[in-house]
Each structure stands twice: as structure tokens, then as C-alpha cells.
Write a protein that binds this DNA or RNA. Structure first.
Lengths: 357, 357
DNA sequence: CTGAAAGCGCTTACAG
DNA sequence: CTGAAAGCGCTTACAG
């Protein structure tokens, strides 16, 4: 009801019997102010219910304490976990992260970016929407605002990225399948417009090659990177004349879809067909069967990205070294009997031989 | 690299050969400006890469176009869906929603709220963190900032809320179970510090009473409202001496946990034990077995909340009428053979009789 | 239709 | 240690 309170530092200066400069100084925790003066001021602040106007301060100081995170699909638990990691890192630094969702729309992304720019963000973490044009970030870059890409990179961009080691993760997963004796493999869902996809397929192909699998024995099926896409891809894979016996999925959502499609066809995942996911979202562990997946330490990557922008802001640069996060394969039940072992990056530098059935 | 570009309206005024008032006017789309003057100005804006400084504008105009959404757990897909609904509504109005996550921590919530306040938000949508103190929003209220609570309400608060009809949803679900012949029921997870919990348990109890079930035959088990909590609660329920045959779960996450625990004990959900969830998150449909759940139209509720604040801001009030959203039971497989019917609110105003087995 | 002037709430040299 | 003054980038009456 009350009209928006308009208490300003001038009011509290009057209240405390000092000048507004003094108030400003105590607000900033300056050591120039005598402690009894400071507490007098703080008392006045308390009593009047004064609210600091950060916008006015930023206008004068010419920098802000808000950092934007723009995420391509908040509905995917994966990105929510990423956001949580970023927030954790920002919490200690006294910056406020604001999250915005683009729902995988480049148009929406443009609006969101413009808002953030106008709002005067000090830095940006973005996971670009699918189909983002190369010049979508031109204005941000022209303004010299520190930015890092998380989880996704743009083909020819010089913006620093924080991504998992997609290539190796996929290779790890494929080797696992190959070591279990599978010789006809499929890669399910995704499409080449995503760099991630190209990396994952690359690792997958490399591993197959190491095991001497002819290219004709592997199926790379494009499709939506969702549960639905996974179902569709699996169905397509199985209708081939010489169908695969195992699949590496673009991500966990796709894997869940594949598992479901298998069940619908009366096949038992892990027995009749092996599936591996990618990302290792929280749900993977509790799925039925529990999903073997490539863990990427999502929240850790989020934190990393956060620290990266923070550092860039501090050192006034828009460049930084890419961070490629370690991955490891978490073996559960979706590829057959649980051998209760975790294959990690280190152990899998080289392909596992001699495990062909 | 480039230092933050400092182009101001004064620069573009000079560039276009007009006064800065004129520039400001075209920026606001005023019809006072002749169209050729306007296009001259727009051209200058284009060329200089000018970025509107919304902070400065807000300072002068004394209002802002940002609305804060503070959410208690972004990791729960349910809240992500809610956020998506809100964003959809804001997209048309030219306001920018900024999402912040409190991770169910009242301390974090306080920080976030303070930030939003200092940032000068025009309005707020919040889903209060668990354990929020009654006076947590005092400062927001004192400042007269329009605010609505979404999904959760605080015991004695006068802040308008947008929530689903928890009571009826729970009653619907319980009647479904009772109509299928179950006579020993359990309510799984949650705790009375959440108003939602009290409402859902209330509806559950009411339905049981309608069917003449003695209070001694129903078990209300408190617990964490997560997958893990669901597993624990189900285990506890089944170790009772006269165990229940069906359970209504606090939410879908709990239900997924219960389903899993059932499987672990060698029981088949839907055959040996019936379970119903609450919220009907996207995953419910694709679960194994597909989960019968109370649908609450999450995104719709989010939109509703968004429109509510928008309207409050416009009419300069902090009061509005509560919105209690309709619910309906989506019957799938987790309570036994799919009868491929949907029970909706209307059909279930009264309990279903005569279906006892 | 357009320009000159004041002011939003803060911070920052600059004196004292 | 504290006060008076200028200025951050915009908008808004007010003249013309």
C-alpha cells in the first residue's frame, strides 16, 4: 500500500546529522569514517528502512554487480544443475546472478541479451540457443563485456568456453560397449549444427575405429535431443536390416527415451540391448534400469564458468583460456550385469582390448 | 578488448544533428517526432552501436521494467516449468524477468530479495523457501512492491497467492485409490511446516472419511519431498504390521522414489501396490510404469502469477485475489491396468461409490 | 515538432 | 575524519 519508499541517503544524512558523502562512505564500508559516526548512520538506515539504490550507484560508478546467465533450456535438469553451480560460485563474490531462459529460440535469445546489455551486466555466461547466428553476440563483444560460453560453443567464435571433454567421453562410452563385445553400434539423436554433437560423434567413431569396426557397422542417427527423440531414433535403429545391439545416446534424455522404446518392444535394456547416456543427470542413477552414463560434473562446470567471468571482469579482458572438463563413465545397469566398477578418464586412456565376446 | 562503449544519447544527438531530448523521444517511440527526424536518429543509433542505459532511465523515471522471480528449487523440473510459464507471460509485456534460485535456503532467499530490492524490481513472484520466517518479506512490503506467492503460501500472510487446488487434488487421487478397492492407504512424505502439505493431507483424509475408512487404517508418513524421501517413506510404510496397499505421494519426485523402492523389494507397482503422484511433471508420462498423477497445469499457474503481478504493478496495489488453479487426475499405469480414462475435477465432485472390490 | 534546463540517487575527487 | 560540488545517462516539464 505504502507508496514506494523514497528514502535516500540525503534523508538518512539529515537523520544522522552528517553529510550525504559520509553516508555514502559508510554504505561502502569505508575505513575513513569514525566508528561512532558509522553506527549513528547505520542506526538511521535501520530506522528509516532505507533501500540502497544500486542503479543510481552503478550509473555513477560506471560498473555493475550483476552478471547474466542465459540458458537455452531451463526445463532440462541438466541446465538447472549448471545454473545451480554458477550461483554457488557467485554467492561468495558479491555479485548477483540473473538467470534468463531462451527456450532454444534465437529470437528470444536476442531479446534477452539486449535486456541484459541495457541492464548493464558486468559479465555474461551463456549457453547459446540452437541455430544461433554467428553475429548474435556482436553487440556484446563490441561493448567489451566479458562473456563465456558454457556447455556449447559456436563454430568460429573466439569467446572462451567451458565444456566437458565430449570427444573423450563418447570414446570412453563406446569402448565400454565394444569391450562388452558389441560390434554393431548406433549413435542416437542430435544433429551436426551443434558442435557438441560433432565432438561426441567424433569420439564414438574413433573408438569404433580402434576396435576395427567397419564404418558400415555403425549407425549414426540424427534426431531430437529429447526423450521423444530417443524413442524415435531407437525405433529407426531397430528397423534396419542388420540392427545394432548397443547405442550411445547424445544425452540422458535421449537414453531414457531409448530405454522406454526398448521396453515397449518387449526388449529388456541391459540384456537384449545396451544403452549408454551422456551427462549423468541426477535421475540416471534412479532409473529403471539404472543408466550407465558419461558424467560431466555439471555443477562443477557451472562454477568454473562463473569463476572465469569473474576473473575476466576483474582483469578487464574478454579473453580467457578454454576449460575442457574431465569426464568419466559411470557404469550402472543399462549395459548388462552391474560390474560395480567405475571407469574413469585415467584408466581409459587406451582402449580395452581382449574383452570381445 | 574495446573499452566499454560509452556512447550516450548526447553523442547520437550530435551525430544526428538534433538535441538529446529529441533522441530520448524517438527512443521512447513518441509520435511527437517527425518521421524523417526519427529515422535520422535511428540511423545514428545503428551506426554508433549505442546501447540504451536502462538504469539511468529508471533512475529518472522512478520505475523499472524488471520483475524478479525467486524460486525455491530450480533443480526440481516442476519449478523450471513454472518459471517457463512466467517467462511466456512476460515476453509480451515488455518486462524482463530475472530468475533467482534460493535452493530452499531462507538465508539465501534474504540475500536474493535484498538484491532484487536494490536493483529496483517493479514486482516479485516468489515461491518461498522452506522455513521462511513470517517477517522475511517485511522490507518488500514496506517498499510497497507488488508481490505474489506462487505454489506456496505463508501461514498468516496477506500476500496474494497462485496455487493449485491441493485439497481437491489430493481428494481426487484418494478417491481413485478407494474406488479401486484399496482400504489401507498411506500418504508419503512432506511435513506440516508447508501449508501445501497440510492441504494435501487434508484432502486425502477427507476422501478416506467419505469412504468410511477408520483413521487407524491410514498412515501419514512425513519425509523429504524428493526421490530419496519417497524411497524411505515407502520402506517405512511396508514394514508396518498391517501395511497399506496404496499410496498418495506428496509430489511426483516422491512417487518416483516409491516406485523404485517397490521394485527393489520385488513388488510390481500397479499390481501389488498402487501409487499416485502429485504435480504431473513431464516425466510422469514416460515413467515405467507411467505414473498416475494429479495434474496442476504448472506452466499455466506460472503465467497466471505473471499476469497477476503485471496487473498489480499497473494498478499500483499490493493486493489481489488469490487464484486457486483447477486440478485433474491423470490416470496412467501406476495403480493397475490402464482404464484409459481421465478423471477430471468436474466428474469428481462427489466420491465414486460402489467400486470397492 | 524541437531545444535548454533541472533533477533522479548515488560516488568521487577536492577542500578543509 | 567530514562537507560542498560536480557529474553518471537519462526523462520531463517548459518554452519556443
Amino acid at each position: 500500500m505504502a507508496a514506494r519508499s523514497k528514502t535516500t541517503i540525503l534523508d538518512i544524512a539529515r537523520e544522522a546529522g552528517v553529510s550525504k558523502s559520509t553516508v555514502s562512505l559508510v554504505l561502502q564500508g569505508s575505513s575513513l569514517i569514525r566508528s561512532d559516526t558509522a553506527s549513528k548512520v547505520r542506526k538511521a538506515i535501520e530506522e528509516t528502512g532505507y533501500v540502497y539504490n544500486r542503479g543510481a550507484a552503478n550509473l555513477r560508478k560506471a560498473y555493475s554487480n550483476v552478471i547474466g546467465m542465459v540458458v537455452n533450456d531451463l526445463t532440462n535438469p541438466f541446465y538447472a544443475e549448471l545454473a545451480v553451480g554458477m550461483e554457488r560460485a557467485f554467492q561468495s563474490a558479491s555479485v548477483v546472478p540473473f538467470i534468463a531462459n531462451t527456450a532454444e529460440s534465437p529470437v528470444r535469445q536476442e531479446e534477452v541479451l539486449k535486456s541484459m546489455l541495457e541492464q548493464g551486466v558486468a559479465g555474461l555466461i551463456v549457453s547459446p540457443a540452437r541455430g544461433t547466428r554467428p553475429d548474435a553476440f556482436r553487440q556484446i563483444e563490441a561493448a567489451g563485456i566479458p562473456m563465456v560460453f558454457a556447455m556449447r560453443r559456436l563454430p568460429e567464435s573466439r569467446v572462451p568456453v567451458v565444456v566437458p571433454d565430449n570427444w573423450r567421453g563418447a570414446a570412453l562410452a563406446a569402448r565400454h560397449l565394444l569391450a562388452k563385445g558389441h560390434r554393431r553400434l548406433a549413435f542416437l539423436a542430435g544433429s551436426p549444427d551443434l558442435v557438441v554433437y560433432r565432438e561426441r560423434v567424433g569420439g564414438f567413431r574413433e573408438a569404433c575405429q580402434e576396435f576395427g569396426i567397419p564404418a558400415s557397422d555403425i549407425a549414426v542417427l540424427e534426431g531430437e535431443t529429447s526423450r521423444k527423440g530417443g524413442m524415435a531414433c531407437l525405433d529407426r535403429a531397430l528397423t534396419a536390416e542388420d540392427p545394432p545391439t548397443a547405442a550411445l545416446c547424445f544425452n540422458d534424455a535421449v537414453a531414457f527415451g531409448a530405454l522406454l522404446a526398448l521396453r515397449r518392444r518387449g526388449l529388456e535394456p541391459g540384456r537384449n540391448f545396451a544403452v549408454v547416456g551422456f551427462d549423468d543427470v541426477a535421475e540416471a542413477e534412479h532409473y529403471m534400469p539404472a543408466l550407465t552414463s558419461v558424467a560431466v560434473d555439471t555443477a562443477g562446470l557451472g562454477e568454473r564458468a562463473a569463476h572465469m567471468v569473474l576473473k575476466m571482469i576483474q582483469s578487464r579482458t574478454t579473453r580467457a583460456e578454454d576449460h575442457i572438463g574431465a569426464v568419466n563413465l559411470v557404469v550402472r545397469e543399462s549395459c548388462g550385469p552391474d560390474r560395480s566398477s567405475e571407469y574413469d578418464t585415467a584408466k581409459h586412456d587406451t582402449p580395452q582390448q581382449g574383452a570381445a565376446a
